[in-house]
Design a binder for these strands. Structure first.
Length: 870
DNA sequence: GCAAGGTC
């Protein structure tokens, strides 16, 4: 009988690989799957066993509303609070569920090696669900490995003390997911709909709200308000100078500064009358500036922003790459303490291979390096450390600068503390006290490798207690208090960490979000300056319900779900309770929205005053206004209707033609770039597709949208004319479609404004076909090819370049079956547009004529005609 | 078109 199978699952592929190599002592075989599977023989619970170690890639599932709640206009956001929620695979293409279910087959033990935090505990249960194991199943057992680092010692220890997964912690995460979803989506949909329907220049496609992102924005706006409401005040300070050993020394006043001129002037007079300074005290103290603790993510992000000029998002991308290339350890960690088993010597040995630190490392190794300071160990991952020697050539400039910092920080942690002597001399004159401070470094310590943290040397002349020194002058310095600067990104990260907003992995995402939503802008020195939109939003929350933008909103949720995690409260009761409170807040917010709107009115222009006239409304026959700022749309002031148009391109009136269905004037939309295709659309049909069964709408995130645009086109359930099956309109796909796309199930449509570089493009994918260039006119006809059913096109060649005999210019034919036309067309497709036909234009072996095509050939009304046997 | 949390 085969030994029992033991399936082990980690949170990410790298951990699975480490665990497998430890347990198999490097003797495993690895095969590819959705994620890698490492297999080996061993013993489990004292019996021979066959091991399979694999991983998920973070959460397997994410939570969302069912389909019927997805329509923004048909759902009242208030209903979302009671709506059911569904879990669906976060990344369906990765097929993690299938992978786990397949690998679990035949296994009698499941060992969960997910990260030892709340999220990891939640993923445990996702894995259990996918694998078909059940808690309390006597035959197929579930085990949880608790480990604090991926080292041989910790892995073996975890194997010897397997426990059960903690359902309460997992339920706490379920609770958070549901609360975040419902609160975030309800507020976001409501305020987006409300303000976007009223103002034309908000410049954000979506006006989002979230229990992390909004307090994050709140911090930036709070600082902005401190600056704008700041009232500078004059102050005065005494600045006595002495000249010693040939240079001038300024002394500090014990009172620092005073805000009353008369009083300050009086003190100046007293000191002037005295005229000399008496040395009243000399103190010398040995001071220590401690070496840093291990580097965690948040500190790396702060340094990246303030010293390297990298935004958190960019810094994490760089770190991620350094990690996957094996140059640094796992970059997402909260811990600053090293595990006791950490091998400092081998890390130092690796760093000795980097020429710029070779000498420093050798000195450390020979002189005895220090044990790092204790720090905090959250039990997730060790601090971020270098793993392998790198060079600038190997990893590129930005990554190198980050890597350098990580190395310097690591060397700092194992270097001696910096020691210096601080000398303070105290003086008195006219009853007032003054002092000056000198610093002398005795041991450079870690500051040698982190020179920006060095203590600056300040030498003082020698003084003797009781000595009287003449003043060279006593200034009455006049200053003005100054407002603080805008919040720096690094300060924001500190505030977020302090208030528990986001996690090491999500802090960069929240900062990125408030930038992308146009709530703040990053200015030079990585200062965060809120935009009018960001300021107005926060001021709005402040006047309706300040809780909505305070950091406490996150801690409230956190504290509630903690009760679930600790088993002190029931999951569904907590969710119900928290959502009830937020629902009340939401209802109040909706009721009071006028107060926020008053602020918007003062800052933004109404839709009716925005934009330029473009296209006549088919209902009232008056011109609508085109609002170019995102999301671009048309607004009919008479009907008070908004019509969204495709985003990120240019839009123009299309020859004053109108849609036969609704009388709206047609527009022509051109996508950006030299190869960007152009197509007509009716504003009404684009927003309200008139035909049922149009399942591949454009600009909705569906197949046609993604592929055809090569990117997101934004809002509006789009049906441009190239998807319209109207049987007689000359712009529909029935009239303009030529033949089936060779690449997908779409149709190649004539681009009506592509002259003189005439072309067809696919209405579903990126495929494009170049037609005879330089022709005066190319149009479709109502005839079809008798061989392949493609639409016959008519070409009016240029007189000077016509390929026709006798200088004739007019030619009709099928682009596939007509020899002349066929030789003049060329397929380009995808973003790379590589040529499919061999070499020169024409006669590519891949285009064959005749025969029956696939996809809809023969169906007379189906516009997808054959591109036979392509 | 929406949140926040994993990870790629």
């Amino acid at each position: 009988m085969a030994p029992p199978g033991v399936l082990m699952v980690a949170e990410k592929p790298s951990i699975a690989s480490s665990i497998a190599s430890v347990l198999s002592r490097g003797k495993m075989s690895t095969r590819k799957g959705s994620t890698e599977v490492h297999e080996f023989d061993g013993t489990f619970l004292g019996f021979p066993a066959y091991y399979k170690v694999t991983s998920v890639i973070g959460h397997v599932f994410s939570v969302d509303f069912p389909e019927k709640y997805q329509n923004w206009s048909a759902t009242d956001p208030l209903d979302l609070f009671q709506a059911p929620v569904r879990k669906a695979e976060s990344n369906p293409k990765a097929h993690i569920r299938r992978h786990l279910s397949q690998e679990a087959r035949g296994c009698t033990h499941l060992v969960l090696w997910l990260d030892c935090d709340r999220e990891g505990e939640n993923i445990c249960f996702e894995v259990i669900e996918c694998s078909g194991f059940h808690i309390n199943d006597g035959k197929r057992r579930i085990h949880r490995a608790r480990f604090s680092s991926v080292t041989e010692k910790d892995i073996s220890k975890a194997m010897d003390s397997l426990v059960e997964p903690n359902k309460d912690e997992a339920l706490a995460v379920d609770a958070r997911q549901e609360i975040d979803l419902k609160v975030g989506v309800a507020f976001t949909r409501f305020q987006t709909g409300y303000f976007q329907g009223k103002y034309g220049n908000l410049d954000s496609r979506v006006i989002s709200y979230g229990p992390c992102q909004t307090p994050t924005l709140g911090f930036c706006v709070q600082r902005y308000l401190q600056i704008t409401t700041f009232k500078p005040e004059k102050y005065w300070a005494l600045h006595p100078y002495i000249v010693m050993d040939g240079y001038e020394l300024l002394l500090d006043w014990e009172r620092h500064r005073l805000f009353d001129f008369d009083v300050a002037a009086m003190f100046q007079k007293l000191v002037l009358q005295d005229g000399v300074l008496l040395v009243t005290g000399i103190s010398e103290e040995q001071e220590t500036k401690g070496r840093p603790q291990g580097l965690n993510t948040v500190n790396l992000l702060k340094v990246s922003s303030s010293a390297l000029g990298f935004g958190p998002h960019h810094a994490m991308q760089l770190a991620e790459r350094l990690y996957t290339q094996g140059f640094i350890s796992y970059p997402r960690t909260e811990s600053t303490a090293f595990p006791s088993s950490f091998d400092f010597r081998s890390t130092l040995g690796e760093l000795a291979k980097v020429p710029i630190w070779a000498e420093y490392v050798h000195n450390l190794l020979s002189g005895g390096y220090q044990k790092p300071k204790s720090g905090t160990d959250v039990g997730d991952h060790p601090p971020i450390t270098p793993m392998r020697a790198a060079s600038e050539d190997l990893i590129g400039n930005d990554a190198w600068r980050l890597y350098q910092y990580i190395c310097q920080h690591f060397l700092g942690t194992v270097s001696p503390d910096c020691k210096f002597v601080r000398t303070k001399i105290q003086f008195s004159s006219g009853g007032e006290s003054f002092h000056c401070v000198g610093k002398h470094v005795r041991v450079e310590g870690f500051t040698a490798i982190m020179p920006w943290l060095a203590v600056s040397e300040k030498n003082l002349p020698r003084f003797a207690r009781g000595e009287k020194i003449a003043m060279s002058k006593v200034e009455l310095f006049e200053g003005k208090t100054a407002p603080p600067d805008y919040l720096s990104e690094s300060e924001l990260i500190s505030l977020m960490e302090k208030h528990g907003i986001g996690t090491d992995a999500s802090i960069p995402v929240h900062i990125n979000n408030i930038c992308e939503r146009n709530y703040v802008q990053v200015q030079s020195g990585r200062k965060l300056v809120p935009t009018p939109l960001g300021i107005t939003l926060i001021r709005g929350y402040q006047c309706i319900d300040p809780d909505l933008c305070l950091p406490d909103i996150r801690s409230f949720i956190e504290q509630q779900i903690m009760l679930v995690a600790k088993g002190q409260a029931d999951h569904s009761r907590i969710v119900l309770h928290v959502l009830q409170q937020f629902k009340q807040k939401f209802a109040y917010f909706v009721k009071q929205i006028d107060n926020m709107d008053a602020l918007f009115e003062a800052q933004f222009s109404p839709l009716a005053d925005s934009g330029r006239a473009l296209s006549k409304c088919g209902k009232c026959l008056r011109y609508m206004k085109y609002i170019a700022s995102q999301p671009s749309r048309l607004y009919c002031g008479t009907c008070e209707e908004v019509y969204y148009v495709p985003q990120k391109g240019t839009i123009k009136l299309y020859k004053e033609l109108t849609c036969p269905l609704d009388n709206f004037e047609l527009l022509i939309f051109s996508m950006a770039g030299p190869e960007g295709k152009s197509f007509p659309l009716c504003p009404y049909c684009y927003n309200n597709p008139p035909f049922e069964g149009i399942d591949t709408l454009f600009g909705t995130g569906t197949k046609a949208a993604g592929a055809a645009s090569g990117g997101k086109l934004g809002k509006g359930a789009g049906m441009p004319c190239f998807l319209c099956p109207h049987p007689t309109c000359r712009h529909s796909v029935i009239s303009q479609g030529v033949c089936a796309c060779p690449e997908c199930s779409g149709t190649l449509v004539l681009d009506p404004v592509s002259a003189p570089k005439w072309r067809l493009y696919c209405n579903m994918c990126n495929c494009m076909v170049l037609l005879p260039q330089g022709a005066h006119r190319i149009s479709t006809t109502s005839e079809r090819c008798s061989d392949c059913e493609s639409k016959i096109i008519e070409v009016d060649f240029n007189k000077n370049s016509t390929p026709l005999e006798g200088g004739a210019t007019l030619h009709r034919g099928c682009i596939l079956c007509d020899e002349l036309l066929h030789s003049l067309v060329e397929v380009k497709h995808g973003k790379s547009f590589f040529k499919r036909s061999g070499g020169a234009r024409g006669r590519g072996g891949s285009w064959r004529r005749g025969g029956r095509g696939r996809g809809g050939a023969g169906k007379k009304v189906d516009p997808k005609m054959s591109f036979s046997e392509f």
